[in-house]
Write a protein that binds this DNA or RNA. Structure first.
Lengths: 190, 190
DNA sequence: TCATAAGCACTACACTTGAAGTGGTGCGAA
DNA sequence: TTCGCACCACTTCAAGTGTAGTGCTTATGA
């Protein structure tokens, strides 16, 4: 088992791309090697088995989906009203939609988690923690709404993004901003 | 190309099970043969290629997810108020969650549609038509709310179901009914 | 009623692809 | 000088595809 941390990270990033492009079944050591541009057999040397690779990729892909520090401090500024929530949610949807491969990889991993208990544990942990973190952030910054508000926004916006990334013609791009605004208006108490 | 319609349908149903259990990459002629309990090579004789199989499975899986005639007429009865919508949505979520393999197969197909234009067209057609149909049904039966109401419920409830089917511990089963009710209360005008 | 033909189920096989894992070599850094 | 890693090569294994071929079943017409 090799120890080079930078190379391991590069392999995991390559794994995310492969996941999004080829699906979880397409995530093979060979494919990761090719995507990362390293010689055949390298991924074999860094991960014990596919389960290992999948689990570590699961941790990393979700980590990369989270906003950076600058984004977080920016989110804490401005007024604490519903219009501000609309802004924040639009930014969120735009940002996540932008990271197409990461989001698709995450959905692939969700489906794969159906068959892999270890992966399910890992994903349950990171996603549950993130949702919980969103709730605390929302309440902590004094934005309007309660815990249920945050959960309902999480549900609606996630599927909206999935819809846009998989079957974009079902909900045209021009409707997205208005749909997000309307979701917030109805879900967040005035 | 064989013509036996019953056998073709059985093969498509087998394909749905395989999709849910093994993912889209696992959907091979061999696997369908095995799942359907027919000799090796049978699926080869019924579908020209994988694209064919995937596309036809896409049509069938969605068809089977729709409520039957009895369910539709039942939905048209009762009062036309918000509490009635809560009931209907709870039934919907329960019914779709029940058909686990069908729902998971559909998500697999969404991801596969990312890579297959023909499949994307088919899914865009059936899913767009279903969403449109839901809007018309809702408005036509005089239930409270507008088109946006239906779309927002569609978004939130779909991800709720996905969450429950893939990572059930993130949102515990006991919270589902209350979450659905709260979603309806906020999204559907009183 | 029987002969004939057509379609299908089923089997077997040849071919291709893709992946896994591992042993060995050379290089670079401690 | 030695240890660890990058890199390459090779063997082995597993799956899947497409199709040729055989025999059964059934429909059709004299």
């Amino acid at each position: 088992m090799r120890q080079n941390a930078a190379r391991r990270a590069a392999l995991l990033d390559a794994a995310i791309e492969v996941l999004a492009r080829e699906g979880s079944r397409g995530l093979t050591f060979r494919a990761v090697d090719a995507e990362a541009g390293v010689p055949t057999g390298t991924a074999s040397n860094y991960f014990g088995d596919r389960d290992d690779l999948l689990t570590q990729a699961g941790g990393r892909v979700y980590e990369r989906l989270r906003p950076d520090a600058a984004g977080i401090t920016a989110a804490m500024e401005g007024p604490r009203d519903r219009d501000r929530v609309i802004e924040l949610m639009r930014d969120l949807v735009a940002r996540v939609t932008e990271f197409r491969s990461g989001y698709l990889a995450l959905v692939e991993l969700r489906l794969e988690a159906t068959r892999r208990p270890r992966l399910r544990e890992v994903l349950t942990g990171v996603i549950g923690a993130d949702l919980q973190g969103n709730v605390e952030f929302h309440l902590g910054t004094g934005l309007p709404g309660d815990a249920t508000t945050v959960v309902l926004l999480y549900l609606a916006l996630n599927w909206l993004i999935l819809e846009r990334l998989t079957l974009p013609e079902v909900i045209p791009g021009e409707r997205v901003d208005e749909l997000v605004a309307e979701a917030v208006r109805r879900i967040v108490p005035g």
